[in-house]
Write a protein that binds this DNA or RNA. Structure first.
Length: 595
RNA sequence: GGUUCGGUAGCUCAGCUGGAUAGAGCGUCAUCCUUCUAAGAUGAGGGCCAUUGGUUCGAAUCCAAUCCGGAUCACCA
């Protein structure tokens, strides 16, 4: 593969600085300690080296240092650096026109990002739904993040396995089950024309209503609140059901399977709509017994210890954490035990080098402990465990709570976004030549684009606020803005054609700015991958689109003054469209040819 | 209380391995569709970067303390 030396311009500048300082003054300054910035727009130049850092060490005045270093670097990077100036301790270099022209000329729109030399097998686990209720806004953030991280890593050339762990057992499922038994009279989703996940979720809400009522009644009958909360008959029923489930009671298992099947049918529809898929789905009902032999191994390795009541623990106080239980006194596993077992299983099955868990930040502690335990047990790839911890999506009124019905339902929100995109598209009336199938697809693309971009443009680590009163925007820093920019370029290219022959010419400021912006795309992908942060790409795509739109209003492509200019600008258009397409595909967002 | 993440424009967010005058978008106001798609562009207005102290040529960025908010510290998952 062609060495993409363009993306290394900043690196080259750093290395040259280090090298020239060494030659001039015989002082070693590592290249990575050199600070290179884009030059302020008001000042002549493209890239700036901050001199203050070396002034003291070299015992030179900023001006003297700048002049000597500037001259030396000009000689070191001939054909690339054309001039320099010094302003108040900042050494500003101008990059040659030829350099950027070459970049535009030689860039291949189908090869925008070079593959890494260090290819890895990476698992991304995301989504992790519960089978007692439908997906909500928080799940959407999770799904979009997981999907996006997988795409980014794939683009870098890694082999990526997308997996999902379904929490399909436990007391919460039994709550839906017992409510169904009590209140449904045998009704099914087909009877009520509901999606299965919503149907089952309704019974989860019914359970909680019934539970609250029972507690109130018991308290009215003179029972203390704390006791009533434990003694409510419906809760007792759910607990009994869980016990029966664990004993393998046939009727209970049948009901459980039946209701879960309804939920999976519903999830399937949602996942298809939002474009989530998994290479493999793990079910907790299969994995919850995993990790038992690891407990034994840990005991003999003395990683774990046993208390008098025979429960098994790990002491993490030396690592600044607490003691953590890994096996109950009755011999059963806890959440942590399963996760250790599952980590081992996944590593074995896929021979992974790294494993990324996309899970909310409420579980930071859990994953810190999980990684530590896996490391202490010396499981393969334990160091490759990463928790992509994302903040909750909150409403202006506070946290969403399924139990209280204050959730933004995923299906509702997606449908709403598609509906709005339909209205807006119809109002603009630019796609009268589309067939109805094409229109459907376009509405989906735009609606989902707006939603995905909205959830991915924010730093994943931070909690974010979603206001259902104000619908998600289609203008400004949004998915549709970028989709629109792409469609606009494509519209031009349909008229001009895409076969170009370039001859050298002087770039205008906006043409050069676009070249610079296009050239940093691989570095942005790297940054996003290293930080597991798709928002870097969202911000980049927006900046690129915005810059192109400015260019678009200032300069014509099809009607450029000269054929030479026209050819150059067509190529810029091709590269911009390809880069926007690639960046957006990293976010799981399609870009239409026309909108 | 321990740990941890955050507090930047009216709102939602960038910027944080210290660098030149702190940026976007939305909202507000004002301009631009006989010229490649106005889901666009241009401009105006809007800031004690939570507070205080420190480190230094230089702090939104690093350190300390304080105040406010979230998460977590379960033999739930």
């Amino acid at each position: 593969m062609r060495q993409p030396y363009f993306m290394n311009l900043i690196t080259n500048l750093k290395q040259s600085t280090s090298k020239c300082i060494h030659t001039l003054y015989n002082v070693n300054i590592p290249a990575d300690q050199v600070l290179v910035n884009a030059t302020k727009p008001e000042i002549e130049g493209d890239y700036t080296i901050v001199l203050f850092a070396f002034v003291k060490q070299l015992g030179k005045s900023p001006d003297a240092l700048g002049n000597e270093l500037g001259a030396a670097m000009m000689a070191d990077m001939p054909g690339i650096l054309t001039q320099f100036n010094i302003v108040k301790g900042f050494l500003n270099f101008t990059i040659s026109n030829d350099y950027w022209f070459d970049f535009i000329n030689s860039s291949d729109p189908s090869q925008l990002v070079p593959a890494t030399e260090n290819k890895q097998k990476i698992m991304v686990e995301y989504s992790s739904p519960n089978t007692n209720k439908p997906l909500h806004l928080g799940h959407l953030r999770n799904n979009f993040l997981g999907w996006s991280i997988a795409e980014i890593l794939k683009l870098q050339g890694h082999e990526v396995f997308k997996t999902c762990i379904v929490n399909d057992r436990g007391i919460h499922i039994c709550k839906s089950m017992i409510a169904w038994q009590k209140f449904a009279n045998g009704a099914t989703p087909a009877d009520t024309h509901q999606k299965g996940d919503h149907f089952v979720g309704d019974y989860y809400v019914k359970y909680n209503d019934a539970y609250k009522t029972e507690v109130v009644e018991l308290v009215a009958g003179g029972m203390p609140l704390e006791v009533a909360e434990k003694e409510a008959p419906i809760l007792k029923g759910a607990q009994e059901m869980l016990l029966k489930w664990e004993q393998g009671d046939a009727a209970t298992i049948d009901l459980w399977k039946r209701m879960n099947a309804w939920v999976y049918e519903g999830f399937e529809v949602t996942y298809n709509k939002i474009g989530s898929d998994f290479l493999k789905t793990y079910y907790e009902s299969n994995t919850y017994l995993l990790g038992k032999e690891l407990v034994e191994a840990g005991l003999s390795k003395k990683v774990f210890f046993q208390k008098e009541d025979s429960s098994v623990w790990i002491d993490l106080t030396a690592d600044g954490l607490d003691e953590k239980i890994v096996r109950r006194k009755d011999g059963t596993s806890v959440y942590m035990t399963q996760d250790i077992g599952l980590a081992q299983l996944k590593q074995k099955e896929f021979n992974t080098d790294a494993s990324i868990y996309v899970v909310g930040d409420e579980q930071n502690y859990h994953f810190k402990v999980l990684k530590l335990i896996c490391q202490k047990l010396q499981l393969p790839a334990a160091d490759g465990i990463y928790h992509l911890s994302y903040g909750m999506v909150e409403l202006p009124t506070g946290k969403m709570k399924s139990r209280e019905g204050t959730v933004v339902d995923a299906d509702d929100l997606v449908d709403e976004m598609i509906k709005i995109s339909k209205e807006k598209t119809e109002a603009l009336g630019k796609v009268s030549d589309f067939t109805s199938a094409q229109l459907e697809e376009l509405y989906n693309t735009i609606g989902l684009g707006a939603l995905k971009f909205f959830l991915l443009r924010v730093d994943p680590k931070k909690k974010m606020i979603f206001n259902p009163e104000e619908s998600i925007d289609f203008h400004g820093f949004t998915g549709p803005f970028i989709q629109y920019t792409h469609a606009r370029i494509k519209s031009i290219l349909r008229k001009t054609g895409t076969t170009v022959t370039l001859t050298a010419n002087e770039l205008l400021p906006l043409e050069k700015q676009l070249a610079i912006e296009l050239s940093i795309f691989p570095a942005i992908i790297n940054e996003a991958a290293e930080n597991l942060d798709p928002s870097k790409i969202a911000i980049y795509a927006f900046n690129l689109a915005k810059l192109f739109n400015t260019f678009y209003t200032e300069h014509s492509i099809a009607n450029a003054d000269t054929e030479t200019k026209k050819q150059l600008r067509i190529k810029i258009g091709i590269l911009t469209a390809a880069t926007l397409q690639k960046a957006m595909s990293c976010l799981g967002i399609a870009v239409p040819e026309q909108m």
